[in-house]
Write a protein that binds this DNA or RNA. Structure first.
Lengths: 210, 210
DNA sequence: ATGGAACTGTCAATTCATTGACATAATTTT
DNA sequence: AAAATTATGTCAATGAATTGACAGTTCCAT
């Protein structure tokens, strides 16, 4: 299906297209041109056409794009038509916040288990999911066909736990720990470094002041 | 101080340099060359030198870079030598997780207040900070010299609240709501769209499978 | 039906980002 | 003290991403 490698710059923009198309769909709008989308999203129409064309011709000359169809197609490209089984490793505030955020499940990302090394919270339930000790992880991952692990533990343990998870057969890691993981390149890692993001904000704030 | 505009690509890499330099400093290492850093960080030495040179010559030919000095300087560039006063708007799980995450304070980002529209949690304390009703926001922002607002509310209310915050004098918004804010360009916005990040992971997972 | 307007898909041009190369300077070794 | 080594800062070359332009197709009004 995928013939040429598509740049991460393009991939990063897909979720935003998806979101805007979802909004248009909810408003009952059936068709949209690259120029109209351009106006709403504040990107060039050329970029929109270029981006979409990486995946095929979804539009029609003289008409534009069918909102519902394009929305579905981008969803498929993003793999949202398939279910993913997730575990959370680290049941701190952030881990709990993610489990409690329902919208991920709507998109097919199902939280199956939560793990933590703190014995005091073992057995505690987060949205019905019981917190388990780390020792259970290996069996759980294998038995429940888990493909994505969400890492919300402190940086000190993260690298080692990531390696364990890979050994257990995980395919992708959504990494909130503030450290770069060292895993084989076929394992997909998506980093969310919140403090990096805040520092960037801080820089822009400071630089705008002079 | 800033003469030429520096690209966001460069800015985005600064926090990572800062992190690695901090680690080296903690290990007691005093000097580092761009080549050594390159090996550790898995980026080209040329990029490191190019990036740093946007801000001045921190190194010395034949010697390399002094770790402690460079760490300090990057910290200053990122504005981490100054204190910032923050409020959280939206005391849900994510908002609470952020307040509880101590490391931000270590970098000079001080949470001064938490606001939420749900009356049931007004008066509740999160790490000693009382949750206040939204109506208090205007006075609080003005009296406490708040410059950064953290938006952790659902997308439905986010755009309107952002406009209010701007009117109250806020300078920057760290936006976790899954919507693009509409604020004047002098207001700095840093978006953290978690579901976009997860969708990107999902794409890469799917595309690696074929 | 026919003509004009509205669009896409795509090629080419441009702009932006990254990498490579090297002159020059400080350091270390002999 | 001189030679050899190391390593920066910067210019030029390359590569990637974005934008502009337009041929060709479809839609819509008359």
């Amino acid at each position: 299906m995928e013939e040429k490698e598509i740049s991460q710059a393009v991939i990063s923009r897909l979720p935003r297209y998806f979101r805007y198309l979802g909004d248009l769909k909810d408003e009952g709008i059936e068709r949209v041109s690259s120029q109209e989308l351009s106006d709403i999203m504040k990107v060039t129409a050329s970029q929109i056409r270029q981006d979409l064309n990486n995946f095929g011709g979804f539009g029609q000359q003289g008409y534009g794009y069918n909102v519902g169809y394009l929305y579905e197609e981008i969803g498929k490209i993003l793999g949202l038509d398939k279910e993913h089984n997730l575990i959370i490793v680290g049941a701190g505030h952030l881990g709990q916040a993610l489990v409690n955020y329902m919208n991920f499940e709507r998109r097919g990302f199902i939280f199956r288990g939560v793990f933590d090394c703190n014995p005091e919270i073992h057995g505690m339930k987060i949205r019905g999911i019981e917190v388990q000790p780390m020792e259970n992880m290996e069996v759980f991952v294998k038995e429940n066909n888990i493909d994505i692990a969400v890492l919300t533990i402190p940086k000190s343990g993260a690298v080692a736990v990531a390696e364990q998870l890979v050994a257990y057969g995980i395919k992708a890691i959504w990494n909130f720990a503030h450290v770069d993981l060292n895993v084989p390149k076929e394992i997909q890692v998506e980093n969310v470094h919140l403090s990096d993001s805040l520092m960037k904000l801080s820089y822009n704030l400071a630089s705008r002041d002079n």
